[in-house]
Design a protein around this nucleic acid. Structure first.
Length: 483
RNA sequence: GACCCCAUCGUCUAGUGGCCUAGGACGGCGCCCUUUCACGGCGCUAACACGGGUUCGACUCCCGUUGGGGUCGCCA
């Protein structure tokens, strides 16, 4: 075990989308693998043919890819290994570590209900443990179906958890669980142990809802004579209502965050801080920095509530860290999809897009915010914000805009400097505050009361567009008054 | 219910017996900056669940209570 390359894994089951809980587990394993220079592998847990859905595999993998959690080697699918598991089930049976159980699911269900009412013993009552060889033979020949159970010995089971420390459990609390179904297929716990062994997994980091499974799996490892990996059970990610994040409760597909303008860097950064801490005052880290700092002694052992607002705050920070060009690449398809522009138009005016992003960037909390923020940079076909209109569009401002338009006519080119110059001169000549001019002008050029500095807008729009929009507003105000 | 885990501001967390009149971040609130909206800067708000011990001294150690979470499938 000493010279094995550290191998970590994530093992999603395609019975739902990848939610933040599994994503965070995957991230921890990945970060840890990168930190120690080990391997990170992916396994699809689809032994339950009933509930597993083929079409869910691709979205799960794309979510991992989106997060940047690249994996090593081939993806293992349990459904392709069903036959492989059988020999181990047989081995456990023949070595005396397991036994046949003829109890029907209905029978077991009745047992459980009875035990619940009587508040008596937990787990399987071992009815089939003492069956004689003859009786077993007889029932097999009679065609009775049977499942295989692992026989848990007396005593207690203990192991050292990377997160929780020394864990000990009385074997009375571990029932003789089923390792192979009556149709011969392996159940989750058996398959997991065999796969982790075959894949050379040395470290298993997963949610602490798996602790009971870990105790069961340790007994399978022992029955099979396999080396037991290091286990680490992280606290859960909870929803704001304090319930465990779960696909069964309809929790969000990680892919959805991407659609909502969340940067994978932000998601990774935020997720890394749920149940783990770099133990510094800084919270914003790049993936490289996280890998650098990621050690298991910094795990936390209490559950964490997933906070959308804080994710958004991280997203804002990471957006600011992106170059204008990178943001332009991400924004372009969103702008096209929103119908604000076309792919061709953008391709020929890439610098314009970049400049638009440069002035809008600090206002973006989501990448997709660009759509809401930048409309007027691509189209003059906007309406004026009603409140702002009432405040800034009136006869006085109309005359001001006419004056401004005339002055701009006299200018060759609108730059940052000339824009400011024109406004300043107008203000001085009329002996008014610049703001008096700026507000109606901004509304005339953008239709909205907020946004980048007016000179930036004028500079970007250019002389012709500014003039057109000024005249449009002048006419609008005139018509508005007569109505 | 049984078993297990956990317990610091609303949320994520720092704290590993004296450095704590408990630090940071998000949120909220206020101020400043400012042509607007943002950004940024500054400040404020707000927590050691409770009760017992141990100790010269407990947020830090132990026990109990309470609270929260998890598990209890021929699901994963």
């Amino acid at each position: 075990m000493t010279d094995r390359v550290p191998t970590f894994r994530v093992a999603p089951s395609p019975t739902g989308y990848l939610h933040v809980g599994v994503a965070r587990t995957a991230l921890f394993n990945w970060l840890f693998a990168k930190h120690v220079g080990g391997r990170f592998v992916v396994r699809i847990e689809d032994t339950d043919l009933e509930r597993s859905k083929e079409e869910l595999i691709e979205p799960i993998l794309s979510a991992l890819s989106w997060l940047g959690l690249d994996w090593d080697g081939e993806i293992i699918r349990q459904s392709t290994r069903l036959d492989h598991y059988k020999q181990f089930a047989v081995q456990i049976l023949e070595s005396g570590h397991g036994y046949r159980c003829f109890c029907s699911p209905d029978q077991l269900k009745a047992d459980r209900e009875k035990a619940k009412v009587e508040k008596s013993a937990f787990g399987y009552n071992r009815r089939c443990l003492e069956l004689s060889d003859a009786e077993i033979q007889e029932r097999i020949e009679a065609g009775e179906k049977y499942a295989l159970r692992l026989r848990i010995p007396e005593g207690e089971t203990t192991y050292s958890d990377m997160v929780a420390g020394e864990l000990i459990r009385d074997n009375k609390e571990i029932e003789d669980f089923i390792i192979a179904r009556s149709d011969g297929t392996a159940t989750y716990n058996l398959a997991v142990v065999i796969d982790d062994h075959d894949m050379g997994v040395t470290h298993v980091i997963r949610g602490n809802d798996h602790i009971t499974n870990t105790f069961k799996q340790i007994h399978i490892y022992q029955a099979l004579g396999f080396d037991i990996p290091q286990f680490g059970h992280t606290p859960m990610i909870l929803r704001p209502d304090k319930k465990k994040v779960s696909k069964r409760l309809g929790d969000k597909d990680v892919n959805q965050f991407s659609k909502e303008g969340i940067l994978p860097e932000a998601m990774v950064n935020y997720l890394s801080l749920l149940g783990w801490s770099p133990k510094t005052d800084n919270e914003i880290y790049s993936v490289e920095e996280l890998i650098e700092r990621f050690t298991p002694d910094n795990f936390n052992n209490s559950n964490a509530v997933f906070d959308q607002d804080k994710l958004l705050a991280f997203n804002k920070e990471h957006i600011q860290l992106k170059s204008d060009h990178e943001l332009a690449v991400m924004s372009a398809p969103m702008l096209v999809e929103a119908g604000l522009t076309t792919k061709y138009w953008l391709e020929t005016r890439w610098e314009y897009l970049r400049n638009v992003i440069a002035v809008l960037k600090e206002r973006m909390k989501r990448v997709s915010d660009i759509v809401e923020l930048s409309g007027y940079f691509f189209s003059a076909d906007f309406s004026y914000d009603a409140k702002a209109r009432a405040k800034h569009f009136h006869e006085e401002s109309r005359l001001l805009l006419i004056d401004l338009a005339e002055r701009i006519e006299a200018v060759d080119e609108l730059t940052l400097e000339t824009s400011e110059q024109v406004i300043t001169e107008l203000a001085v000549d009329r002996d008014i505050k610049k703001a008096t001019i700026i507000h109606p002008t901004r509304l005339a050029l953008s239709g909205v009361p907020g946004g980048p500095g007016l000179y930036d807008i004028m500079n970007l729009l250019g002389r012709k567009n500014v003039l057109d929009r000024l005249h449009r507003a002048i006419d609008f105000i005139a018509n508005d008054r007569t109505n």
